[in-house]
Design a binder for these strands. Sequence first.
DNA 1: GTTTTTGCACTGACCAGTCAGTTCAAATTC
DNA 2: GAATTTGAACTGACTGGTCAGTGCAAAAAC
Lengths: 218, 218
Amino acid sequence: MSARGTIVAMESSSAASGGSTRREATRQKLYEAAVTLIAEQGFSATTVDEIAERAGVAKGTVYYNFASKSVLFEELLRHGVGLLAASLREAAEQTARDGGSRVDALDAMIRAGLVFIDRYPSFTQLYVAELWRTNRAWQSTLMVVRQQAVAVVEGVLREGVEQGEFSAEIDVPLTAAALVGMVLVAALDWKSFQPERSLDDVHAALSRLLQGRVSGRG
Amino acid sequence: MSARGTIVAMESSSAASGGSTRREATRQKLYEAAVTLIAEQGFSATTVDEIAERAGVAKGTVYYNFASKSVLFEELLRHGVGLLAASLREAAEQTARDGGSRVDALDAMIRAGLVFIDRYPSFTQLYVAELWRTNRAWQSTLMVVRQQAVAVVEGVLREGVEQGEFSAEIDVPLTAAALVGMVLVAALDWKSFQPERSLDDVHAALSRLLQGRVSGRG
DNA sequence: GTTTTTGCACTGACCAGTCAGTTCAAATTC
DNA sequence: GAATTTGAACTGACTGGTCAGTGCAAAAAC
């Protein structure tokens, strides 16, 4: 219920060339309203009137700020995934700086993914629901943006293979997709069906899976 | 594009208590039409007129066979997931009969999952898109049915733990969810973004991940 | 002769997007 | 520093179109 946080904490470098703060604040409210409603109901089932009402704003204001319902949604997507990719990249780089191994980097990225989903569950929900749809206006936006996130994981895997830390036999793109999927689905399940668990708990379980410590004596 | 196969190859034990075959055939056509359209566009964006047209049937026929658009969709869901769960169970049992280990069983289930998704990609797409939505009419249907599938995986994991084949430290429900997610997402990615790969290829990659043969010298 | 399908006109609700008009804070003028 | 102007931001009633679901007489299938 309580959808904590905003997708759009990004500040938009306020001062420089910045539009009025008022306008920015309105857009924020609209993003927040839209993300939860669309996550719950889907894009088509969510009306602009609902979004406006939830944001405490008149319908006209939505169209003053966004060209259309789809544009509002697309900007929401772009913004959110940008945040996620940045967060993954940050985790990988931090590990590298600390002299960690590639497995450590993957582990750090899993955690970063979990933290993100914990903060923005609605966004994640909405993203997964739309990613594999075909024939949608924002299909290309979605693809580009997906690649952005998966590429970070692929990068770490590839480096690991080059360094001999990972088996040369692994299929980099496929493994990257599988890892992302694992985290995504496990996290959504966590939030939906056992929200009482702690992030550390979930992280530990996935970590174990990653390191193949499932079979064999713990 | 070419959405092969039907969700509903299930035969419905034809003879016994079976309604006329003609009616059943019409329902089949409607299921097929609905599943691809809804996978592409989502439930709300798909109109009953479209479904009827794609099925080559009059609109009135839709309402002669189903009480409403939502009911048609719900029956579609129930049917599809029933198929998946049965297929997973079958894979696990077959492995047991052959005297395979639990890891073998998990591996067989991964393959069964891939085969299912290969056959019914639209259904999978649609299922993933709807599963984590809240506030939907068919929410409970979906939950029940999800549990049905995940439970099969949990069962194998639990037996493995009891038998000492898996670490006692693993979190059974979470690991089960993660495994299902891994397969689901990897497969959807396969179908969407690199459809030229073979099922064996994808299976091998996931198998490796499962058995922790990612890190270390292959 | 019963079940199923067809074709098609119709209704009423709902909804994306528009637009003429309002608000108000900041800039400009005197 | 009070009076006036400006224009970006916002409002909400309205429009044109769409769509789920109905009703029903006639045809087709079995």
